[in-house]
């Protein structure tokens, strides 16, 4: 299995003149759909892709037909973000600490650019997230990919979360009061 560009163009090196400033809105919205709706959709799938497990993404990728060639706009890079929080949960912001993140950007042969920003240090995870992000911007492929990739990944995440939560809920205290009643 390979996802390298067949023609070898620009693999592993930023493409000339392919500035990252060209990224916003690079996925042309399908006719009639407002830009905010597309943005909300993209937020949703990028979140699902970032929170998915790498093994699940690999599996999903294995199922994809017509894998596109792509070139890197920015090869995977490991860095970090400063995680912010609020005093008391709701007050002024403060810096809690940092978190490792891997990011990359690429352009598939259809012209769409995909972006990967994922927690941790897996370059492969960022790469798969970015390539799915690019493919999902293709109005012709979105419905199928959403059905076959994004929904199952989201369902798997929800399942893990639900299982964890139901385990926690088994530890919920059920207070009861012992009534020492008067005889009547």
């Amino acid at each position: 299995m390979t996802m390298r560009s067949e023609n070898g163009a620009g693999v592993g090196a930023p493409a000339e003149g392919a500035g990252l400033e060209s990224l916003p809105g690079s996925g042309s919205p399908p006719g009639g759909v407002p830009a905010e709706a597309v943005q909300a959709e993209r937020q949703r799938w990028m979140s699902v892709l970032a929170k998915a497990q790498l093994s699940e993404l690999e599996q999903a990728w294995d199922q994809v037909e017509e894998r596109p060639a792509f070139q890197w706009l920015r090869p995977p890079e490991i860095g970090m973000v400063m995680v912010r929080a609020r005093s008391g949960g709701t007050g002024g912001q403060f810096n809690l600490g940092q978190m490792t993140v891997t990011r990359c950007a690429l352009r598939v042969d259809s012209g769409a650019t995909g972006l990967g920003y994922v927690q941790g240090r897996s370059k492969r995870h960022a790469e798969l997230a970015a390539i799915f992000d690019a493919l999902l911007q293709d109005g012709g492929r979105r419905a199928v990919l959403d059905e076959e990739v994004i929904r199952p990944l989201a369902a798997a995440y929800d399942r893990r979360r639900d299982e964890r939560s139901r385990k926690a809920n088994s530890t919920k205290v059920n207070f009861f009061t012992l009534v020492r009643g008067e005889n009547d």
Binding site: E77, V81, R84, L96, S165, A168
Partner: peptide, 20 residues
């Protein structure tokens, strides 16, 4: 040794998936 990409939005502990 790592580059910083920026700062996150503040985390929302009210939306925490609570385990305890």
């Amino acid at each position: 040794t790592l580059t910083r990409f920026g700062a996150t939005l503040p985390i929302d502990t009210a939306k925490m998936a609570v385990r305890r």
